[in-house]
Amino acid sequence: MQELINRAKELLADGTVARVLGWKAGDLPYNPEPAYFETAEALEDFVYNGFCGANLSKYMIEASKMEGKTMVCLKPCDTYSFMQLIKEHRVDREKAYIAGVGCKGKLDIEKIRARGIRGIESIEGAELTDDAETLKIQTIYGEKSLAYADGMLERCHVCKGKEHVIFDEQIGESKETKDAERFGEVERIESLSPEEKFSYFQSELGKCIRCNACRNVCPACSCRKCVFDSNKFDSSQKANVDSFEEKMFHIIRAFHVAGRCTDCGECSRVCPQGIPLHLFNRKFIKDIDELYGEYQAGADIDSKAPLTDYTFEDAEPSIVGKRG
């Protein structure tokens, strides 16, 4: 982290960048938040640790409109989102100085809480520099410990790899975290009966409070005017235009990002209701891979997105029934 701060100070001092986009400490040990830093003094609040899961690439849409360059800290998976945004002409590559930051897996406070660890006062071992495999958590009920991997975000267990697909310089070490099959859960659901499938999704989606966090955080959801914006009430984006949108929100949104979703995992991370939104996106990714050839959105700049492309030999929709 210190290395990152020092480098940020240098770049600010020599005028390469006008600001730094990173994370600053929050009011609790586990909620650092995205922030801009414009001076060396401001960088005192800069943090980079296991709780910096937030993908900063979408902020670059706004930062691209600002004066001067922005140094943006992107983890390996975040760089896919950034690449996809360049491809969709939503960010200006020239306005970004990309610090590809190392990553040893990001933590999910909900997973830690789910282990019955409450009343957290401080957490040790969530620093990137710390080699410890265990989190030491000081709570109001005494000290608890948890294996780092057990507190990790779902997406880190199926990490795409620790390569930055785009960067100006790389800072910090990474560590392999992948220990699960990316499509494992999707396959499990596919094998259920129609009744079981529906009741599973109904019970998950029934929890949704339509806060729109999943849409707002998504780097692929960068439409200036979204179909889910109500044109009736300027002040309240949340209000649904009609009940149809309310009911089908998740499928429509997943379809809109199909072929463009990099599987960055932000939607599932931010959902306050813990809805596994990645199961929708990944189903599309799995189908695209199987039917139209492996495709990773954001891996390159010039490939055609699967839904804006076709071949004469594409499978017929009846394949859905045949695959069983």
């Binding site: 999707v186 659901i189 596919e190 129609p194 009744e195 079981e196 499938k197 529906f198 009741s199 999704f201 499928i251 997943a254 379809f255 199909a258 929708f280 189903k283 599309f284 189908d287 695209i288 039917l291 139209y292 699967p306 839904l307 804006t308 492309d309 076709y310 071949t311 004469f312 594409d314 499978a315 017929e316 929709p317 009846s318 394949i319 859905v320 029934g321």
Partner: peptide, 29 residues
């Protein structure tokens, strides 16, 4: 080329519907 795009779109949509429990027999192209 309209139907080529439609073919991909419907394949993915029908597969998604099947995934959430709407039997594939209820959708057809």
């Amino acid at each position: 080329t309209g139907n080529y795009y439609a073919r991909r779109r419907m394949t993915l949509l029908f597969s998604m519907l099947d995934y959430i429990g709407v039997e594939s027999g209820r959708t057809r192209v």
